[in-house]
Design a binder for these strands. Sequence first.
RNA 1: GGGCCUGUAGCUCAGUUGGUUAGAGCAUGCGCUUGAUAAGCGCAGGGUCACUGGUUCGAGCCCAGUCAGGCCCA
Length: 998
Amino acid sequence: MSQNYKDTLNLPRTDFPMKANLAAREPEMLKAWEEAGIYRQIQKSREGRELFVLHDGPPFANGDVHMGTALNKILKDFVVKSQTMLGKRAPYVPGWDCHGLPIEYKVVKESRELSPLEVRKKCEAFARKFIDIQRKQFKRLGVFGDWEHPYLTMDPKYEAEILRALAVFVEKNLVYEAQKPVFWSTGAQTALAEAEVEYQERDDTAVYVKFPVVGGARSPNALANTSIAIWTTTPWTLPANLAIAVDAKENYVVQEFEVVHASDSLRGESAGADSGESRNRDGRTTLVLAEKLIPRFSAATGLQPVGKPLASFPGADLEGVKARHPFLDREVPIFTAGFVTMDSGTGAVHIAPGHGADDYVLGRKHNLPILSPVDDHGRYTDEAGLPNLTGKYVFDANADIVELLRERGTLLGEEKFHHSYPYCWRSKTPIIFRNVDQFFIRIDALRGRALQAIHEEVKWIPAWGENRIAGTVESRPDWVISRQRSWGVPLPVFYRAGHLSASSSEERNRDGRATSEAILDPTVIRKLADLVAQHGSNIWFEWDDAALAKEVGLPLGTTKGTDTIDVWIDSGVSHKAVCAVHPELRDPADMYLEATDQHRGWFQSSLMTSIALNNRAPYKMCVTHGFVVDVDGKKISKSGTYEKPTAADHFVGKYGADLLRLWASSIDYTTDVPFSEEIFTRLGDTYRRIRNTLRILLGNLHDLPNTRSSRADPAHAGEVEGARDETLKVAHRDAKPGLAASGAASTLVGTTLVDRWILERLDEVIATCRSAYEKFEFHKVYHAINQFCAVDLSSLYVDITKDRMYCDAPNSPRRRATQMAMREVFEALCSLLAPVLVFTAEEAWRYSAVAGIADAGQPGSVTPVTRSVHVQEFPQTQGRGREAIEQVEELLRLRGIIGQAIEQARQEKVIGNTLEARVVLNSDSDVTQKISKEELEEFFILSDLTIQQAKEASASVTKTPYEKCARCWRHRPSVGTSKAHPDLCDRCESVVAGADAT
RNA sequence: GGGCCUGUAGCUCAGUUGGUUAGAGCAUGCGCUUGAUAAGCGCAGGGUCACUGGUUCGAGCCCAGUCAGGCCCA
């Protein structure tokens, strides 16, 4: 009999599925959005609003979207969607970085022997393919934007802007030409990037060489008649030697050595006759070298120390000392440098600024010429100062150099040295470091203003970003903007007739600088830019020199260069090529948002170009996020012994995009971002909690008449039974449009403490979330909403109001009041969640809109998208205060005391179900006097409560003597008093009787 | 090796200008419910705040160092 009563309850009803099935459902939603053009609709809805420009840093069009890229795009989408829902117009124009070595490398690897033009065409196809792949994957993540009109750095119009920017740099005298050593393949006669270098094992002749000390300002007396001993595995670089480097802190000694036994390696010593001052009469020699390396030196050369060191001092004391080149008429200075190591050699490093990266930097620091007397094929030029060897391949010349050292008596020893050495991946020839003409941007001209902008004009999130970028800007050397590559925007340099080659040594002066043949002319560059805008940059490769020269107004015989522009210029001018010219955007942008590596990358390159062009930063704010790391805090690629999937697609397919987004919202992105399968499993629980909360709210709202719109959904019109509900008529009449309507909910007849409380709490959650969104602290949104759903709603509000929701008459005032509150909560939750759970929020929103629960948007429009949750604005707080919150906090304290007493009673088997308990509460709070006993019983979810005021709070539990109501399951004194329904309490009896009557 | 940053329960995060017994959600264990049911509710256990030293009446918080990790340089 009792089971019949189930039909008289108002149980929750909704079609909103409990199981999300995101992987299957999300694509359907995407399709609907796409068909409706949701991005355009959103932009339209914000016409005339305050503008917020998040400018997209272009990812490289190469490979699949991995977790790091996904995190970046999702965070950007959080910003764009939340700014939109805060009421602003926040357009999002995504972009791709298209040029650059990684693509060119892959293309060339696949098919060799291609002309530059063929390489470029294949590169473009490659880039376009991955743009399509990534675009699909980004869209799948629920990221809204102008995906059909992204900016591409290889678009002719974009390329033209790069060139125009360069014209300005040239005009402002920021560009100069100089030389810099690069990896050079003598086999392919081309510069190589680090990625194109492969290492092979190789035997070389390593030599110990002495540089006789000739004095110097701070030279200690002890250095008279001594020589600095150096060691090198590349004797062929000695003609380019211009200095020696030592470590400042390591200890160096002046030590006498003697020959202990004759050996091949010492032929140089025995033959040496005129080596001069460092040689003692008795065949001994006095050398300066690092103390630590003496044993190794002795073992390699057979020279044994004689007695104690004559002097001992830190390397810093050698700074400024001069030594004579072992075979050229040249004095070379000694410097201290950080890169000197003590694992091999003598602690004194031979420096050839034209043949090594460290050497080059040190040489620049001390204004040494950058000498590199080697041609494209790796043959000595006459600049080497060794006429006999001019034209000889340097690796073949090693033996000649050793012989020369021996002749001059400066060879201390030689040894076979086995090491790994860089080789050209294509020609398989050993690589050399060699000078090539390069173009630079003068950073010193921009540095001061850049630092000022960093410190005074840009907001950095997190704040330490300011320190970080300032540090890199302070120490950054001049910017090398030329690349010896094919896949890039051509560097618009022409050469006057007669110029041989961009890298030919013959054209250089003695100090290693190129004779200035290059034409860098702003007018010419701008003409070229116009041509490129029209035809694309391939014309540089397709048109011959004469045609190009004619078009840009240069005389016949002018030739074009072959370099391309550094891709960091490409992306670095996006503020000019995109923000400044796109009708929906603005330069400066409000925000750039990238991973922390971009402090040195895009943030800096963009800042420099913007200072150069506009004398200001291109952004008002830079936000950075950390890298995705494994659960043990290690970089994903480094952890574990097996390959773990890192492609975003894998996780989207397994868990759904909303889960990825929930993950992105749950973490504090300012530091390393932890990521693991376990984290995803936990997030699934959180997700289900949020989803079920939305679902129970929807279920409880199924019979709430639509008071928002005069246009009832015809499909559900018959269900709007509450139209005759007096309470709601009051509510409706007082209601103002939009969310203000719900302000009436808390003053409705029938409103109880819990309703006031949940709405006050909602106010707090709205305030927290709005503030967190405004400050881009998304994980605070996550935690606030999670807490609200799990604690306030699920375990309290929904649980407490179940009795009235299920058992009261459908239109009882307190039930309707609760529904009004629930509707407000539901709408607010959907909106606040929408930037994160883009699919789920929309899905719930649709179910509610169909049921006439949520705000249906503009009346008269039937397009579902115009009702999309993503067009909504975040709810505003209603200024409800904290009165109910404070009361509930008191009650929750008492609830804990009751809970413990009940738990004990349950363990003692006094009761099973909580509703069987008779509770006597000794309350120390005055709240229990202000709130009616009936409300308190409901709040504590009890059948039988007695309150007594006391000094100390306590509770006692016995089994209630009352009978259980067959309908509401509470044990009430009124059960049995009705003749018609003796198994019901009075409340349920009247509800059932009332229903029978209609 | 240098610059910047991070380290609080198994997981994700709170923890205000130093001030009671370091909080929350999830997870775990034990119960209850079966009218949110591939759900819901209650209770409980779980932390040397990475480590060491210092300043202080008092340190998760301030200082120094160590260890581990990240990004960028070298």
